[in-house]
Design a protein around this nucleic acid. Structure first.
Lengths: 196, 196
DNA sequence: AATTTACGATACCGTACCGTATCGAAATAG
DNA sequence: CTATTTCGATACGGTACGGTATCGTAAATT
């Protein structure tokens, strides 16, 4: 869509306003959650007229979906030389994204609307999980080449299990341990112990 | 509280109405979710005056918390003779409770309010997870006695991992597999392969 | 310059709830 | 029977928000 502002004669839509409303949407999502936030509040915080929002989106779902989609994070592909060094990097990266109000509220929203509005779950899958699943498979492949794990290990299943544990640890934080350490320990259970 | 209806002279509170409002609360929670449901709607569905609700609860949180707490399910302790037979029973039991609108919405609510209102997470932990965690430990203990798993296996961690996978599979249902089969496969990853 | 479209602001009207109050009826204790 | 408390119902004022319309202004095309 690089040629978005073509043809039509009139004043073009303000990219600035558009960005402001996306930002306000994410902020409010993190602060009060999906159900509680109103279009009016978003408009007010973004310093934007309600009209301007309604002109682009016809529902809160649409707006929020687009706002979440607008977050572009690079998926890192660690290559630290050993499986567990790579995994630690992945865990740390996941922690930084997940352990925030925005992360929590997003997950809550996704689950709550998983049946009625599968949109959010799809976005989360496509934009967040799927790429990381690919990355993880690459990491496991290298580990297989180094004989660090069994050659018939199913990377997808391991990734899902890891994601599940992360989700669980986000809701019920471990008491005596870091989130990261806890996730790692669970993963050791799956992948057999690390070097020593 | 067996002596609840004592002393006071006037008309006692109706247990029937109380049950009706708890039922209506759970129904609506399953249908529309926590944030969307109103006290008025609960009263209407229960065939009860709003006053009757406000006399007992001062907030929606209180009401919902009590409604969820009122669900009494027996935690089953399977003893089918082998580890995997026991596990299959546990998985099936979890599936029946989790894979329902009420289960999904409860989880969503718990996560969404995990930081602001830890009440729900605590209830879920105390009433649901903790008992099952105990049960699971017993199952693992028996498996250890039968030499089916390593003697130093941490049952709590395995349980948490399993719960995490169940949670994950609830949000992102496996495409080519049953929820139960999928969870089982992940668990095999952790506990080493079953007999054959 | 004329036209077209978007902008922020504001004013609406309608609806849904909240939480309280009030009512007459019903249920209990003394 | 009397006092007390709860019951469902209804009414009420207040707030918040949805979604549309309107207005004068700004930014673009031709």
């Amino acid at each position: 869509m690089t040629d978005a502002d073509q043809k039509s004669p009139g004043r073009p839509r303000s990219a600035k306003s558009h960005q402001a409303m996306l930002k306000a949407t994410l902020d409010l999502l993190a602060e009060v959650g999906f159900a509680t936030m109103s279009i009016e509040a978003i408009a007010a915080r973004a310093g934007v007229g309600k009209t301007t929002i309604y002109r682009r989106y016809s529902s809160k779902e649409e707006l929020v979906a687009d706002a979440i989609e607008s977050i572009r994070e690079e998926v890192l592909l660690p290559d630290a030389g050993s499986l567990w060094a790579d995994i630690d990097a992945l865990i740390e990266n996941a922690a930084q994204i997940t352990l925030t109000p925005l992360g929590r509220q997003s997950v809550a929203m996704i689950i709550g609307s998983a049946t009625s509005h599968p949109t959010f779950a799809q976005i989360y899958w496509t934009k967040y999980l799927e790429p990381r699943r690919q990355t993880f498979a690459a990491v496991i492949d290298r580990a297989k080449a180094r004989d660090e794990v069994a050659s018939d290990l199913d990377p997808g299943l391991v990734f899902d299990a890891m994601s599940g544990i992360m989700l669980y640890a986000t809701i019920f934080p471990p008491a005596a341990e870091t989130w990261q350490d806890y996730v790692r320990r669970a993963l050791e259970l799956i992948l057999a112990p690390p070097s020593r």
